[in-house]
């Protein structure tokens, strides 16, 4: 195969992975709108959701351009089925209680931060620019979710126990972050994407620091780690999200914002 075509196909896949993770996580967090424990938190969560969806728009729009088949951000978001989505399994996990949502946000944000920092130096100028913009938003997500983890972990006995349980439950989706494949390898080779081992080392470091501050622990995972997002193998939850998210544009294909 022509190497440029190979590179383009890999970049398209890679952009879907980043864009879908932002889109699905953004959609999940938006479910909190009107339900957060306090008004400020409602505003914070919807702002974080907006950041993710904004990032998804840029990434999917660019993915459509790279693919070159006339698909845009909307076609990609609304007219693909679950098996064609490439979001991290973590992003589609249900909101659960507020602690579950914050742990999920924390684990993803401390992954996104070193990832987007590295991507802002990508050999692909467009991806680098999107990443440079996104990383500034991700920094706020890291701060916000870390603050909550510390507050809940170092709070009451009940909040401590609950948030520790959230960590124990969600940890099985962490290997999926770092489970690189041939797409990652090809793009790492071209200095477009960073080496996931380096990202994992930074992720570990930040997680450990925050866990110590919060008085929480990262337990040994005894059950099997769940992976597969890079090949479109999702948990049962993604289908339900898509059913809600895609209903309108699929039922009314010509619907437009006025």
């Amino acid at each position: 195969m022509n190497t440029n075509l190979e590179k383009n196909n890999a970049l398209f896949e890679y952009l879907l992975r980043l864009g879908d993770t932002s889109l699905i996580l953004g959609h999940r967090i938006a479910e909190w709108c009107g339900h957060a424990p306090i008004l400020e938190e409602d505003i914070a969560l919807t702002n974080i959701s907006l950041d993710h969806i904004g990032q998804a728009r840029l990434l999917l729009d660019y993915a459509g351009k790279i693919e070159g088949k006339g698909r845009n951000e909307d076609t990609l978001a609304y007219h693909r089925d679950a098996r064609q989505f490439r979001n991290l399994l973590m992003a589609e996990q249900p909101n659960g209680d507020f602690g579950d949502t914050m742990v999920r946000q924390f684990l993803v944000s401390v992954y996104n931060f070193p990832l987007y920092s590295a991507l802002s130096k990508s050999a692909d100028a467009e991806l680098a620019a999107i990443a440079a913009k996104s990383v500034k938003e991700v920094a706020y997500h890291v701060r916000h979710s870390s603050d909550w983890l510390i507050r809940l972990g170092d709070g009451t006995t009940e909040s401590h126990e609950k948030v520790q349980q959230s960590i124990n439950d969600l940890l099985i989706y962490v290997d999926d972050f770092f489970n690189g494949d041939e797409v990652d390898a090809l793009l790492v080779g071209q200095n477009i994407a960073p080496d996931l081992n380096a990202i994992r080392a930074l992720w570990n470091e930040t997680v450990q620091l925050t866990m110590v501050k919060a008085g929480l622990v990262i337990p040994q995972v005894n059950s099997a780690m769940r992976t597969g997002s890079r090949k479109g193998n999702h948990t049962e939850y993604l289908g339900y999200i898509l059913a809600e998210m895609q209903f309108l544009p699929r039922a009314y294909p010509d619907a437009e914002w006025l």
Binding site: E40, I43, L50, D51, G54, Y140, R143, H144
Partner: peptide, 13 residues
């Protein structure tokens, strides 16, 4: 700082 997130994406309280 009372909240890092405000009425629009660009503002903190």
């Amino acid at each position: 700082l009372t909240s890092a997130f405000g009425s629009t994406a660009c503002k903190a309280l």
